[in-house]
Write a protein that binds this DNA or RNA. Structure first.
Length: 295
DNA sequence: ACATAGACCTGTTGGC
DNA sequence: TGCCAACAGGTCTATG
């Protein structure tokens, strides 16, 4: 499911309710998601305050008083929703767009400045997970080892990409999905960025770098387009396909701005291009692109 | 080192 | 309408 913009949208939605709130109770409705919950997970959190919410790549970080952090990944289908206590019936929690509770796996009961609030993690496919990790050892968390730069900051540049690409022949699509090269991109935004930059997903990445190791024009465009598409998607509240809804139940709307993703057979939106969006499979995953203007 | 295929799990969609 | 295959926003592992 969620790529960086969706996780960032979730973080921003949860922060006003979770930051500075006290965790009264954590309820696990099953012993595991993709992985078992850590031993003593609920007990370690109950009674503590939440300091802040953060994010690294597609991981949501819940920094808890006392120096520990919940590392949560939403997998393909995970979502959080917020339910406020009904004023007329204390102890009951409601939300106008409540989902089927079948896949409500974790419930956080909190008390914040505005009163009690319930945060629910729902995940039909259970590819998500939650781990507990010491704050000061976060860089040692296995999935964070060797993680590439965030596409939201200045660390992602054409020069950086050239340095990573120059010796490789891997198709561009696969390289951009590699979290060790860039953190947080997934299938949607990789397809969208390659289309914006006019680059074929099958290009061997080394071909985007000149003999002196400098990025060619296409790679410079790509670096800019990755940053732009991610920034625009965050601003739009992410993309809502099947599972991603914002924590208040509303939908992100970046899916309306897709140029190629999930648009097989439609005409290419590039001005002056007469091509049609096609679909190929690379490493088992769909790539949407226009073979006319992506070369 | 690198590339692909398979595994994990449930739900939805589209073709017949 | 029903059935079934294909596919879905992600990673991790095994296998060439």
């Amino acid at each position: 499911m969620p790529e960086l913009p969706e996780v960032e949208t979730v973080r921003r939605g949860l922060a006003p309710f979770m930051e500075k709130a006290r965790i009264d109770r954590v309820t696990l409705n099953r012993p595991d998601l993709r992985f078992p919950f850590p031993e003593g997970f609920a007990e370690a959190l109950q009674g503590r305050r939440i300091d802040a919410l953060g994010r690294r790549a597609k991981y949501l970080l819940i920094h808890v008083e006392g120096g520990s952090t919940v590392i949560a990944h939403l997998g393909m289908s995970g979502s959080f929703r917020i339910e406020a206590e009904a004023s007329e019936t204390p102890g009951e929690f409601h939300h106008p767009r409540s989902k089927d509770a079948t896949h409500d796996h974790v419930v956080f009961d909190l008390t914040g400045e505005a009163g009690p609030v319930r945060i629910i993690y729902n995940d039909p496919r259970r590819f998500g997970f939650m781990h507990l990790w010491s704050d000061h050892l976060l860089d040692d968390y296995p999935a964070f080892q060797g993680l590439g730069p965030e596409p939201t900051g200045n660390l992602l540049s054409a020069d950086y990409l050239a340095s990573r690409f120059k010796t490789r022949k891997q198709p561009l699509k696969g390289a951009l999905l590699d979290q060790k090269i860039i953190a947080g991109l997934g299938n949607i935004y990789v397809c969208e960025a390659m289309h914006r930059a006019g680059l074929s997903p099958e290009t061997p990445v080394g071909a985007l770098v000149d003999a002196a190791g400098r990025p060619k024009a296409g790679l410079i465009r790509l670096s800019d387009d990755i940053r732009a598409v991610i920034a625009e998607a965050i601003e739009a509240g992410g993309s809502s396909l099947r599972d991603h809804i914002q924590t208040d139940g509303s939908l992100g709307y970046f899916q309306h701005r897709f140029r190629v993703y999930d648009r097989e057979g439609q005409s290419c939106p590039t001005p002056g291009c007469a091509g049609t969006v096609g679909r190929i499979v690379q490493a088992g995953r769909s790539t949407f692109f226009c073979s006319q203007c992506q070369t």
